[in-house]
Nucleic acid binder design. Sequence first.
DNA 1: CGCCCGGTTGACAGATATCAAGCGTCGTGG
DNA 2: CCACGACGCTTGATATCTGTCAACCGGGCG
Lengths: 258, 258
Amino acid sequence: MESTLNDEQQKNRTPQMSELPTTCKEFRQACENCSLAKLCLPVSLAPQEMESLNSIIKKRLILERGKTLFNVGDSFSKLYAVHSGSFKAIMPTYYGKEQITSFYLPGELMGFDAIQSDQHQVNAIALETSSVCEIPFNGLLQLAGNIPNLQRQLIKIMSHKFNPDSNVNLNSNADERVASLLLALSSRFAQRGFSAVQFNLSMSRQDMANYLGLATETVSRIFTQMQEEKILQVNRKEIHILDFRQLQVRACVKVASE
Amino acid sequence: MESTLNDEQQKNRTPQMSELPTTCKEFRQACENCSLAKLCLPVSLAPQEMESLNSIIKKRLILERGKTLFNVGDSFSKLYAVHSGSFKAIMPTYYGKEQITSFYLPGELMGFDAIQSDQHQVNAIALETSSVCEIPFNGLLQLAGNIPNLQRQLIKIMSHKFNPDSNVNLNSNADERVASLLLALSSRFAQRGFSAVQFNLSMSRQDMANYLGLATETVSRIFTQMQEEKILQVNRKEIHILDFRQLQVRACVKVASE
DNA sequence: CGCCCGGTTGACAGATATCAAGCGTCGTGG
DNA sequence: CCACGACGCTTGATATCTGTCAACCGGGCG
């Protein structure tokens, strides 16, 4: 079954970081050395399988705040794994009526929107200085055909988008939306080994508001309101969750213990 | 490469509809004879590959209006392809604050929400008398590993959910939401060989409203308003689009020709 | 035939957007 | 090092959209 991988594996066994003169700003780091491996694609791959995956991931790109990784209409050939920093995906529509559809944190994959039509459907913009690993899509599919674990992992990652909680609930008010976003970010930071109760937002209030379908003023007012109620402490981009339980109540989260 | 499939294929070659005494109401019909094959999973499969897929699809279930196919928390083992009729996926939350997350038409696959946690995240409820084909998920993955076309097709189907247009735009008003939903349904009916300008809604106004994050009264008012403006003709569940172009304008659709 | 339920319509209220002003921080340049 | 300007954020006043409540209508079903 693995006979088709031999030359990929061969290539991977050759020394690192010397052979390819490219224009990118940094060479890849092996997945097996990446602290994000447990969040990203290589979850539960055997060392040998991880090596195969590694062999198709050639480049790491660095983007500064505000730079776009890809734009609507760009032709599709690669997925991108956030290695550091963060991104927003934004769908331009009429007259500045753009809609931010996702935020991406380290270990998360971007570009799935383009699979259907082979063209990207959103602009991906760095929210801060960030780096991404390029994952050639055809290579990934080929590999996934040979590594059941990788196939399952890819499909599992894609299935996140089908979780109703990963989208903003349309039948929720402004409170619930802001609270839900904060809880979602909190949980994603925690997954990455950061504090669940204190973190920095990389997006502006306007980005949050747009993502949630609110006005920036409304987001701002809800922050001050939640501060007055001792649920949050907010200092510009810095969020401190003081009353996690109450924040869950605001987000209408069903909590197991009650 | 196909050695692992032999016994599946064997089984498939045995006569139809006689061997399996089950509790389901109808036995499967072969994918190759199904008019939905071009929308469903078997797209672009070779006859032999289609046969393999066919071999894992054992049952067809029939559900009457209002019956649930699966519920939140049900353990996951199968995807379901709508064969006839239609469904809604609904996420129950606090106190009747439920949220309808999708509608499903013939040829569309349900159950992806459950992949992540192995438990369904929504209730799937028939909007009318409907039938579905059961697709064992593990069997499908195994098959997909051996049939690159099937793998690609599965991933392409899943990627639909990443298209920003397949979700309600949060920064849109009631007009735009209703218009967008009608256009989306129109296009999906057209794909299935039905009229793009005249069709029947299987969901109630309340379902539409909930899906769109509006009140039923608002949906109702927008229907009457669009009737007065000669954009639509509405008779209970029956929709007639009189001015397609204007409906697109309402939905803020970017049209290539202008 | 009459009830029930989904849908429509109207009046009103409330949530949130919009408009406008002011504030603090950060970066730049003198 | 300080002053200035720009920008993002906050706050207040007001407008608007949509939700809520209530009544009514009409078709379908018992």
